[in-house]
Simulated assay, not measured.
Amino acid sequence: MKKLYKTILVDDDATCVFIAQILMKKAGITQGIYTAENGRQALELIERSCQKDYQGKDACCPDLILLDINMPVMNGFEFLEALDQRWGLNPQITRIYLLTSSTNPADVEKASRYAIAGYIEKPLTLEKLISLGL
């Protein structure tokens, strides 16, 4: 398994972020873990760090984004839409998994419209993380 360079956790629930950080460190799958409390903060992180990568130049875009759906300011779907409009969703550069407590079939269906890697129901566990094959 190749170690990821950069991961962004986008979730307004501090407990979920803390647990995800512990699990990712335990699994040893990423060198750097960055956090954002909502989609807008995540977009700002991406704007600062990977704008050049999406234009085909070297940069340090995240390899992985774990994204909650239900957040204040900018929710997960709004984030996906904004990212798609700005750069397009490119799974070869960044794999995005929705990590959410929502089991609403409408959310699952809506998620399938985007070029994301998958949909993970909370809580995140080491087994779920390893099963992603990162």
Score class of each variant (00 low, 15 high):
L124R: 00
D107Q: 11
T35S: 13
I96P: 14
C60R: 10
E78A: 14
Q85R: 11
K26N: 06
T30L: 06
L23E: 00
N104A: 12
D58Y: 02
D107P: 13
I116S: 11
N104D: 15
V17G: 02
G39T: 01
D84G: 06
Y119K: 02
L64I: 12
K110M: 12
L4F: 15
K57W: 08
Q21I: 12
R48V: 13
L66K: 08
S112E: 13
R86D: 08
C61L: 08
V73L: 09
P91A: 09
A42L: 00
C60S: 06
I93H: 06
G88R: 07
E127F: 03
T7E: 07
L43N: 03
P62A: 06
Y97E: 03
E121K: 00
S102V: 05
Q92I: 05
E81T: 11
Y114G: 04
R113S: 14
V17L: 11
I22E: 08
V10C: 01
A42T: 00
C61D: 01
D107M: 04
Q85M: 07
A117S: 15
Y5V: 07
L134P: 12
D53K: 13
K110E: 13
G118Y: 01
D107V: 02
A20P: 03
T103H: 08
F77W: 02
G88I: 15
K3T: 14
P123M: 03
R40N: 09
G133D: 11
M1I: 04
N104E: 10
T15E: 12
T125F: 05
L9E: 01
E81D: 10
T7C: 15
L23Q: 04
Y54R: 13
D13N: 15
W87K: 11
E121V: 15
N104S: 14
G76N: 01
Y97D: 05
L89K: 10
M24H: 11
F18W: 11
I93C: 08
E47M: 12
L129N: 05
W87M: 09
I19D: 02
K52R: 14
K6H: 10
C50G: 15
A42W: 09
C61T: 00
I33V: 10
Y54A: 08
D84N: 15
E44Y: 10
K3Q: 14
Y119D: 05
N90M: 13
Y5I: 07
Y5A: 10
L134Y: 11
P72Q: 06
F18V: 01
A106G: 03
D63Q: 03
P105Q: 09
K2V: 10
L134A: 11
L89Y: 08
K122T: 06
R40W: 04
C16Y: 07
F77K: 02
G32R: 06
K128Q: 10
A27G: 10
D13A: 15
N75E: 07
L43C: 05
G76K: 00
V17I: 12
L4R: 14
K122L: 07
D53P: 08
S101K: 05
D53L: 06
Q51K: 13
N90A: 12
I96H: 06
L64A: 14
Y97S: 00
G76Q: 08
C60A: 07
A14L: 14
E109W: 04
